[in-house]
Amino acid sequence: MAEPMFTLCGQVANVYVQPGGTSKKTGEAFDPRDKVQILGHVPLQGGGTKLDLVTLNVEDAKPYQVVQGKTIRVPVGTYAVGKSVGYFIPQGARLALVSGS
Rank of each mutant, 00 (worst) to 15 (best):
M1W: 14
M1D: 15
A2F: 00
E3Y: 12
P4T: 14
P4N: 11
M5D: 09
M5F: 13
F6Q: 10
L8V: 10
Q11W: 07
Q11Y: 08
Q11S: 09
A13P: 12
A13D: 12
V15S: 12
Y16Q: 10
V17P: 02
Q18E: 10
Q18A: 11
P19V: 04
P19E: 12
P19N: 06
P19S: 06
G20Q: 00
G20C: 03
G21K: 00
G21H: 12
G21F: 06
T22R: 11
S23E: 13
K24F: 10
K24Y: 02
K25V: 04
K25R: 11
G27R: 06
F30N: 03
R33A: 07
R33K: 15
D34C: 08
D34T: 10
D34S: 12
V36D: 05
V36Y: 08
V36S: 12
V36I: 13
Q37L: 15
Q37W: 04
Q37E: 13
I38C: 11
L39P: 05
L39E: 08
G40T: 01
G40H: 08
H41N: 15
H41E: 09
V42T: 09
V42D: 06
L44H: 10
L44W: 09
Q45V: 13
G46D: 09
G46A: 11
G46L: 08
G47V: 14
G48A: 06
T49D: 03
T49C: 03
K50Y: 03
K50Q: 12
D52Y: 13
L53Q: 12
V54P: 01
V54G: 04
V54W: 07
T55M: 12
T55V: 13
L56D: 04
N57K: 03
E59C: 05
E59P: 02
D60H: 01
K62Q: 11
K62F: 11
K62N: 10
K62D: 11
P63F: 03
Y64F: 12
Y64D: 05
V66N: 15
V66E: 13
V67E: 03
Q68K: 02
G69R: 02
G69W: 00
K70Y: 09
T71W: 01
I72Y: 01
R73T: 14
V74S: 02
P75Q: 02
V76C: 07
T78N: 00
T78H: 00
T78R: 06
Y79T: 02
A80P: 05
A80K: 06
K83E: 14
K83G: 11
K83V: 15
S84F: 15
S84W: 11
S84I: 03
S84M: 14
V85P: 05
Y87G: 10
Y87K: 07
F88A: 06
F88D: 02
I89C: 05
I89Q: 04
P90N: 04
Q91L: 15
Q91S: 10
Q91E: 15
G92L: 13
A93D: 05
R94D: 07
R94Q: 08
R94E: 06
R94I: 04
R94W: 01
L95T: 04
A96M: 08
A96D: 05
A96S: 07
L97D: 00
V98P: 13
V98W: 15
S99E: 14
G100S: 03
G100N: 03
G100V: 01
S101E: 05
